[in-house]
Design a binder for these strands. Structure first.
Lengths: 227, 227
DNA sequence: GTCTATAAATCGATAGAC
DNA sequence: GTCTATCGATTTATAGAC
């Protein structure tokens, strides 16, 4: 993603010269970032209230009280905005899970990861929809993107689960013989199922997400983990 | 849903009179049903190949080689077509699960239900997306609709799972103390998670749906069901 | 009953005035 | 840097000829 809008160096150097210092350049960059953030915040609000398909440049422009064309000076296209939303979405998803890693005991950590996963999904339905349920076009790109050295936030989040099961297996506490990756992805699937069903149907499942998680963890502790 | 197109009685009685018998009326009705089915088949194909958002009256008209306006003589709107697709989708979903009920043993029946659920989702991705993953607008309506006396096909499908767990509990074969409904909906969530993740991300989860199901059933048999 | 033609709305994106 | 104005494409749905 080479967004030319992020490197206006030539223009500013020509106009102000470097003898003037970089303060004005920095101010411009800051204002630019602020405008972009304003656009993204409005976009998130629209997706939350009206769904992803309702995310149009005109609606964003109305929300931030600018003309539609102005947004194109800060974002290449509507797709670029959607991609940025997904990117930020995976990052806040990872941030929501991370505190669970402070639990030293892998079983307690696992339960906390599940609780945090579900809470994130229910409290941020617009973000959850965007990264896990909508048109995979943008989300898949953001999930699979290879950052410079590290994995994408989405992959890192999954890695939290995998490492927890690897640890349980190392300690000989797994009751069945299965790959940590397979177990982790099965858990992921269940968490995703609980959240996405709740977000799609308001009245079904009749059981609350918390109770569904409790039944699942009861089964999990009995059937997968040795004490 | 009072679709005036379904009750053209007055028109036909005026035109043909009842002395002429009902054969022509029946032929008209049959042709009408055939046209509607042709529209729905084309709509299914479009949803399969290009996604639900690409379902437009023009595309349907092109596919069946009629003018766009003609479709409005048979369907009230695009929404009515989407609703009909969901309705038929729930019915074929139920039909795909039903054969599992021939297993007398509830545990074997449960495993077969899981296999059939996942197979249906993977083999009918367009229908699955439509009834369980897309805009809940039409699906929710079709799921919650109260047919004359019986439940909707969607509710009936869920009832297959619930009754299986009720049977297991009656026989004293449940290892944990939980409502059959809660257990059934937890299983539903997991099945839905496995299928929908696979349909949304092509490369993640890395574990195949079959292997995910196997891990899950291993945990389930160990942690939930007494032998 | 089907067609052509089109209305009315809305979309993404761009051009040019200021 | 922001605006107005608009292009060109797309949509649902309708009107009227045949």
């Amino acid at each position: 993603m080479n967004d030319v809008h992020f490197t206006p160096t030539v223009h500013f150097v020509k106009r102000f010269g470097y003898t003037q210092g970089v303060s004005k350049v920095k101010r411009r960059e800051r204002e630019r970032a602020e405008f972009r953030e304003e656009v993204l915040a409005a976009a998130r609000r629209i997706v939350l209230e009206e769904g992803f398909d309702a995310l149009t440049m005109r609606k964003i422009a109305d929300a931030i009280e600018y003309a539609p064309g102005t947004i194109y000076l800060y974002f290449e296209s509507r797709d670029a905005i959607a991609f940025e939303l997904c990117r930020a979405g995976f990052e806040s998803f990872l941030a929501a899970l991370l505190p669970a890693m402070s639990f030293a005991d892998p079983q307690l950590r696992l339960l906390e990861l599940g609780r945090r996963y579900i809470r994130f999904g229910l409290e941020n339905p617009e973000t959850y929809r965007l990264i896990f349920m909508e048109e995979p076009k943008y989300a898949s790109e953001a999930f699979h993107e290879e950052a410079d050295a590290a994995d994408s936030p989405g992959k890192q989040a999954l890695a939290l689960l995998v490492s927890t099961f690897a640890e349980l297996r190392e300690r000989g506490r797994l009751a069945i013989d299965a790959e940590p990756t397979a177990i982790a992805e099965m858990i992921w699937a269940t968490m995703h199922g609980i959240v996405s069903l709740k977000l799609t149907y308001d009245r079904y499942p009749q059981t609350s997400p918390d109770d569904l998680l409790e039944v699942f963890t009861n089964v999990l502790v009995r059937g997968l983990i040795k004490p």
